[in-house]
Simulated assay, not measured.
Amino acid sequence: MTAKLLMEDLHVGFGTGDHTTTILESINFSIHAGEFVAITGPSGSGKSTLLSVAGTLLTPTRGHLLLDGQSLSRLNAKESANVRLHQIGFIFQSAHLIPYLNVEDQLLYIGKIGKIPKQKAKKRADELLDMLGLDHRRRHYPVHLSGGERQRVAIARAWMNDPQLLLADEPTASLDASRGQEVVETLATQVRQQQIAAVMVTHDTRLFRFCDRVITLSDGKVDQIEERNE
């Protein structure tokens, strides 16, 4: 089975010669369709840098990054932006919803910038709102939503353009434990149903039970890969 996301001997460093600082070193792993993988490790271990490389926000110093067989290692700025818009969905610590758009319009706006035809975008938004239990909140603005609801809108928004890869950076950091687990359980379920690849950076060990694998980073290297849900 072809990997959705593949990292081969991936390095990230800054500086030149004797003044080089290595952030990531010899990263090798793959994620297949329907897999939900957690990345964990202490602060400064390279987790956020790894997510930035996977999301084409940062170019690796050397090595290979492939998404669905397409090399992403040396894209120019325009090509990277196109990949992020059409192939990658992002979920951050905070939902970052647009305050003056209601829930439905948050999704339709993503469809608009992704150049999805209006009828198709409306149908996709309806499906996502129903799937994530938000249909009754479609006309509400972010200020009137709970923290869990806002993160579910963020999940729906990340899925709006049918991404091949979903990247979540501490998606439960702003939520209490029960809300956080609810959001990640929803995320994991939809990753498997939609058959996309997903990577979540988290410090919360309670969330590992929703994941297929847990990759621990230490000093910019893969320290351990633990299989879960076998």
Rank of each mutant, 00 (worst) to 15 (best):
W159P: 04
G111A: 09
D68Q: 08
G63E: 02
L24T: 08
T2G: 03
Y109R: 07
K112V: 02
E25D: 15
I91C: 06
T205V: 06
Q190L: 11
I31H: 04
P42A: 14
S26M: 04
P42C: 03
T216E: 13
R206H: 13
V143H: 11
R179G: 02
V103S: 11
L75I: 05
K221N: 08
V83M: 12
N229K: 13
V214M: 06
G220Y: 03
M160G: 09
D135N: 12
I116C: 12
S178T: 11
L50K: 09
Q70W: 00
V103Y: 04
Q164F: 02
L166T: 04
H140L: 06
Q151G: 11
E170C: 08
I91Q: 06
L57C: 09
S45D: 05
A3R: 01
K115A: 15
V222T: 14
E127S: 13
Q194E: 12
M131P: 00
H140F: 11
Q195N: 14
L57N: 09
M131K: 14
F29M: 10
L75C: 10
M1S: 14
A81D: 13
T20D: 02
G13D: 11
F208T: 02
L6P: 00
D9S: 14
G15I: 07
D162C: 04
F14E: 10
L128N: 08
A81P: 01
M1I: 07
P117W: 00
V37G: 06
Q224P: 01
S218D: 13
R139N: 14
V143S: 14
L107H: 09
M200N: 07
R206F: 01
L50F: 09
D130N: 13
L167V: 09
P99S: 08
T59P: 02
I91M: 06
E226F: 00
P99D: 04
A95P: 08
R137K: 14
D169W: 07
K221H: 09
A3S: 15
A54R: 04
N229D: 10
T202V: 07
G220M: 02
G89M: 05
A156F: 02
Q87E: 15
W159C: 14
S80D: 08
I155N: 10
I116A: 10
A197G: 15
K123P: 00
I113T: 12
S218V: 01
D130Q: 13
P142T: 05
N76Q: 06
V201F: 03
P142D: 10
H140T: 01
V153D: 08
Q181T: 02
H86I: 03
K112W: 09
T40R: 06
Q119S: 12
Q106N: 13
L217A: 10
H144M: 12
K122M: 11
A156V: 06
E149R: 05
E182A: 14
S73F: 01
N161S: 08
P99A: 09
